[in-house]
Design a protein around this nucleic acid. Structure first.
Lengths: 201, 201
DNA sequence: CACCATAATGAACGATGTTCAATATTTATC
DNA sequence: GATAAATATTGAACATCGTTCATTATGGTG
C-alpha cells in the first residue's frame, strides 16, 4: 500500500492530473482510463475517486487547462494599434488557432467530447472560460465598430470565431480534403478572414 | 430461438437498422447498444454480428442515411435563376441546415462522433457522401464566379459551408449562449451569409 | 502503547463490444 | 420420408470500462 505521507492530498491530485495529461498526450484520449492512471502513479484505481468525483470531473479539469492554454495563445495577438494591424493579427490569430488544434489534437478534440459538456459543468465557470475565448478576437474587431455598435461587434465576433472553428473542425476531422495541396487550408483561413472583413466594411 | 424463415437476411439486417434508428431517435445515442437492439427485435446480441461487422459498422450505415437525408434537404434550395435568388436561397439553405441539426439532433451529433470517422470508412464512399454535401451550396455560388474561377468557387463553397457548420455546432453544443434573445442565432446565420457575399462581391 | 481518524485498497457490480462453440433450423440428398 | 449437410441463431464467456465500499494499512494524538 502506498504511503500517504509522501505527499499532500493536493500533490497527489496533481500527480493524477499530470499522469492523465501525459497519457492523453502520448497515447490519445482512448487510452485514458482510471486503471491506466492508477498504474502510472503506482496507486489503486479507487484512489482516484478520493480526489476526483468521477472521470468526467477529471476530464472537465483537463478541458479547463486546455481552454487556459488556448486563451493564452490567442491573447498574444489581441493588441493592435491600427485597423490594418488588427486585420493582420486576426489572420495570425485564426492561423494560430488551427496550429494549436493541430499541435494539441487530442486535447483539442476532448473539448468537443459531448459527454463532458452534458456534465452541465458546475454553475457556469466552465462556460465563462469558453466565453472568455471570444475576447481576444472581440478586441481586434473593436476598431471596425462604433461605440454604439457593441451588440453588432459581439455578434460579429462570434460569427467569425465560429467560422474559423468550423473550418478547423472539418479540416481536423478529415472532412475537407480538397486538393493534394497541403497549404490550401491555411489559404482558406486567410480568405475567410479577408472576406469577412471586406463584408463588414 | 427465433425462426430464420420469417425473413430474408436482408430483411433482418433492415430490422436491426430500424430498431437502432428508433432507439437513437427516442432515447439518444447513449442508449444504442448491441443488447438493446437485440432486445428490441427479439434476437440474441450475437445475431447482430452476423449482419454487421461491428457496432461501428452499424454507426457508419446510420451516418450514411443521415448524410442522405441532409443532402436531400439542402438540395431543395440548390436551384436559382438569378444572383438575388441565389443569395436568398443561400440564407434559406443555411437556416435549413440549422433546423435539420436541431430536429435530428441525435443523428446529427453522431456524424461528429470521432470514433466513427477513425473507422477510416472503407475505401472512400463515405467521404464521397460528405463531399456531395458541398454541391448544393456550390451550385448557388456559381453566378458569383466566372468560368475560369472554378478553384476559387470550390474554396469559397467550403469556407462558407464550414462557417455555417461552425456556428451551428457551437450553438448546438451550448457554447454560443449569447443573449436571452432566442432568435439571435438565426439572425447570426443571416448576417454570416450576407457578410460573406458582400465580401466576395 | 492504545486509540482513532483517515488514506489506500482491490474485489465486486453492472455495464459495454465482441467471440465462438454449441444448438436449432432449414435445405439437400438418397 | 429419413438422414446428412449447411447455415442461422444462440447466449455464456472474455476483456474491458466507470464506480462503489467494506476492509486494511498508515500516521498522528492522548
Amino acid at each position: 500500500m502506498a504511503r500517504r505521507s509522501d505527499h499532500t492530498r493536493e500533490e497527489l491530485k496533481e500527480s493524477v492530473f499530470n499522469a492523465a495529461w501525459t497519457i492523453v498526450a502520448e497515447e490519445g484520449f482512448e487510452a485514458l482510463t482510471a486503471r491506466r492512471i492508477a498504474k502510472a502513479i503506482g496507486y489503486a484505481p479507487g484512489t482516484i475517486y478520493n480526489l476526483y468525483d468521477s472521470m468526467d470531473d477529471l476530464y472537465l479539469q483537463m478541458n479547463s487547462k486546455t481552454l487556459d492554454l488556448l486563451y493564452d495563445r490567442l491573447s498574444l495577438f489581441a493588441r493592435a494599434s491600427s485597423k490594418d494591424e488588427a486585420a493582420q493579427n486576426m489572420k495570425k490569430m485564426a492561423l494560430d488557432y488551427m496550429h494549436f488544434a493541430d499541435e494539441n489534437r487530442a486535447f483539442w478534440l476532448m473539448l468537443f467530447n459531448l459527454k463532458v459538456t452534458e456534465h452541465r459543468s458546475d454553475a457556469g465557470w466552465y462556460h465563462d472560460k469558453v466565453e472568455r475565448l471570444f475576447l481576444p478576437l472581440e478586441q481586434l474587431l473593436t476598431p471596425f465598430y462604433g461605440d454604439s455598435q457593441i451588440k453588432e461587434r459581439k455578434i460579429a465576433t462570434r460569427i467569425l470565431w465560429s467560422s474559423v472553428h468550423g473550418l478547423c473542425f472539418l479540416q481536423e476531422t478529415d472532412k475537407l480534403i480538397l486538393m493534394t495541396n497541403q497549404s490550401s487550408i491555411e489559404e482558406m483561413v486567410n480568405i475567410l478572414v479577408e472576406t469577412f472583413l471586406r463584408g463588414i466594411a
